[in-house]
Amino acid sequence: MFAFSSRGTSGAVMEGRTVHLRHPELADHEQWAALRAESAQFLQPWEPVWPRGDLTRPAFRARLRRYAGEIRAGTGFPFFVVRNSDEALLGGITLGNIRRGVAQNGQIGYWIGEKFAGRGFMSEAVALVCEYAFARTGLHRLEAACIPGNSKSIRLLEKNGFQREGVLRAYLKINGRWRDHVLYARINPMHLDAARLDRTDI
Rank of each mutant, 00 (worst) to 15 (best):
F77P: 00
F79E: 11
F79V: 11
F80Q: 03
F80I: 00
F80S: 02
V81S: 01
R83T: 02
R83M: 02
N84K: 15
S85M: 05
L89P: 00
I93S: 01
I93E: 02
I93G: 05
I93H: 04
T94S: 05
T94V: 12
T94R: 15
G96L: 13
N97K: 07
N97A: 09
I98D: 13
R99A: 11
V102K: 09
V102W: 13
Q104T: 02
N105G: 08
G106K: 06
G106E: 07
I108E: 04
G109E: 12
G109T: 07
Y110M: 06
Y110G: 05
I112H: 03
G113R: 14
F116W: 11
F116N: 04
A117M: 13
A117G: 12
G118T: 10
G120Y: 08
G120V: 11
M122N: 06
M122S: 07
S123F: 06
S123K: 05
E124G: 04
A125M: 05
L128R: 07
V129Y: 02
V129N: 01
V129M: 01
C130H: 01
C130E: 14
C130D: 10
E131T: 14
E131R: 15
Y132Q: 14
Y132R: 04
A133H: 09
A133S: 13
A133Y: 07
A135F: 04
R136K: 12
R136L: 01
T137M: 14
G138H: 14
L139W: 05
L139F: 09
H140M: 10
L142P: 09
E143I: 01
A144Q: 00
A145P: 01
I147K: 03
P148M: 11
G149T: 11
S151E: 10
S153D: 09
I154Y: 02
R155L: 09
L156D: 01
N160M: 10
G161Y: 12
F162Y: 08
Q163S: 06
R164P: 00
E165R: 08
G166V: 06
V167M: 07
V167R: 15
V167T: 13
